[in-house]
Structure formats: C-alpha cells, structure tokens
C-alpha cells in the first residue's frame, strides 16, 4: 500500500503506476457534471485547484441545524466517463494533479494525464460509508447554487483508499482489462 500525502507533488504523482493501491491523506475537491461543465465553459475556478485533486462525487451532506456545521452522510465516487469531454481542458486550465472517480476515462483524458503529469485514481463504487468515514472535515463549499450533490465541496481526507487505474505514463488498467475481456468473449462465443 502506497501513501500519498498533502501537499501533492508532481514527483509523487509520477511515481504512481496503474495497478498501485494507494491511501490518500490531505485535501480533495468534489466536482461532478455541473462543476466540470462550469470549469470548462468559464475557464475559471472559484478556488485555486493547482496541484489539487478533483473527486468525481456527489455526496450526501447535511447541515446540522444547531451547530450549522456540514456533516458528510455518504460520499462514494460517481461514474467518471461523463466528464471525458471536459477533463483534458480542466487539467490544462487548472493544473490539477489527480482525479478520483470510478469506471475509468477515455483516450483524451489519458493523453492529458501524460501531458500534464496527472493520475486517475479509482475509488470503490458504492462504498459511500467507508469513504465518508475517511473524510475528516468539510472545509468549504463553492458553487453551492448548483445544488448540494453538484456543488464543489472542499474536504480533508485521511487514508482514502483508491487504486491507480490510469497513470501519467500512458498505462490504463481499463484498456488492459477491456482488451482481455473482449478476447475472452470472442473465445466463449466461438467455442
């Protein structure tokens, strides 16, 4: 198990390879469909994302009526491929070093990972409680007008469990598994 700690550096990202199991500790920013569309269209971000990690996640966050503090009730990853049209430009514009999501992304994002020295982490889809437990604080919220699941939440995490499935050297575990499963399918159907 590899540990990746904040502040994240390009060197540490470069060392990560597809297949590595990693525990992330530090800051992450949620961003899903509406945030990606916003960042892509405006080329600006309400917060500096340089060397930061974006988490494809629409959490369940409730505000405590008494303390007014935000509480994370559930926070697993959402399907990343929907951000494929935007991710490359966001890597270029914002200088992020990591993306956490699920399901993997396409060739354009893989190209961006190589070009901008970034990495794609796969979290366990559906594991909303295990992942919410690793979020130790909600530090801020941006673009809250997009609605709670779509807003950009600034979170601090500890030992957030992920697997690198696309690295900055052009390797994609998704491509490898897809190729293999297509071969297996062909064999099953031909036999």
């Amino acid at each position: 198990m590899i540990k990746l700690n904040y502040p994240y550096t390009r060197e540490a990202i470069k060392d990560l390879k597809a297949g590595d199991m990693v525990l992330i500790s530090g800051k992450i920013f949620t961003g899903r469909d509406a945030v990606h569309k916003y960042l892509h269209e405006t080329h600006t971000s309400p917060v500096n994302l340089y060397n930061q990690i974006i988490y494809h996640c629409g959490p369940v966050i409730l505000q405590n009526a008494q303390t007014k503090k935000y509480e994370v009730k559930a926070a697993g990853p959402t399907t990343s491929i929907r951000e494929e049209p935007y991710q490359w430009e966001i890597m270029q514009d914002q200088g992020i070093v990591g993306i956490i999501g699920k399901g993997g992304m396409g060739p354009k994002t893989l190209d961006g990972l190589i070009k901008f020295g970034c990495v794609y982490f796969h979290a366990i889809g559906g594991a909303a409680q295990v992942l919410a437990e690793r979020i130790i604080s909600v530090d801020n919220v941006y673009l809250s007008e997009l609605g709670s699941p779509e807003a950009m939440w600034e979170l601090s995490v500890i030992d957030f469990p992920v697997v690198v499935t696309m690295d900055s050297h052009g390797y994609s575990l998704h491509e490898i598994i897809k190729r293999k499963s297509d071969q297996n399918l062909k064999m099953l159907l031909d036999s």
Partner: peptide, 9 residues
C-alpha cells in the same frame, strides 16, 4: 450507522 450504502440513492 443506518446511513445510505451508496450516496446515489
């Protein structure tokens, strides 16, 4: 915790 298994309910 009586909490959602997945955040996408």
């Amino acid at each position: 915790k009586s909490a959602p298994i997945c955040q996408d309910t």
